[in-house]
């Protein structure tokens, strides 16, 4: 690796409060404390933010060591943009309820698809156990 200008690096993001999106669709917000060459991350004072439509709820989670390959992106939360986003915080129980009903719906659809495939002689592959919901 080089120190050439124009080189993307996470070093400048250290100690910043960042928003992390994981491959399974989770959104985490925490202070980035350390990184390595695989983009493994250590997040401090992390919260998991659950979004349903324009509402969100936060769950405090503490320290995360995240394996780099599960990270989709890291973003800096901009306070201006956040104010204009129309996102509103809601009690976490409400948000979790909404999320649960959405997930039940999705599960039903997936089951129907699987059934249709099975009827045509196709079996779900082992890769399906690793779900990437986004």
């Amino acid at each position: 690796m080089s120190y050439l200008p124009g080189t993307a690096s996470l070093i400048n993001e250290i100690d910043k409060r960042l928003l992390i999106v994981l491959r399974d669709g989770r959104t985490l917000i925490g202070y980035l404390r350390t990184i390595d060459q695989f983009a493994n991350l250590v997040l401090h004072q992390t919260i998991e933010r659950i979004h349903v439509d324009k509402q969100y709820g936060d769950i405090p989670r503490g320290i995360f060591i995240i394996r780099g390959e599960n990270v989709i992106l890291l973003g800096e939360v901009d306070d201006e943009k956040f104010k204009n986003s129309g996102l509103e915080e809601a009690p976490i129980d409400e948000v979790l309820e909404k999320q649960r009903s959405l997930q039940l719906q999705k599960q039903k659809e997936i089951e129907e698809k699987r059934k249709a495939l099975r009827e045509r002689g196709l079996e779900p592959s082992h890769l399906e156990s690793i779900q990437e919901d986004f």
Binding site: K54, Y56, L73, S85
Partner: peptide, 16 residues
């Protein structure tokens, strides 16, 4: 993708 509404700059992992 509502979570992206408040983000201005981001770092994207090449593998994704």
């Amino acid at each position: 993708y509502p979570h992206m509404l408040s983000v201005k700059n981001c770092f994207i992992r090449g593998s994704v």
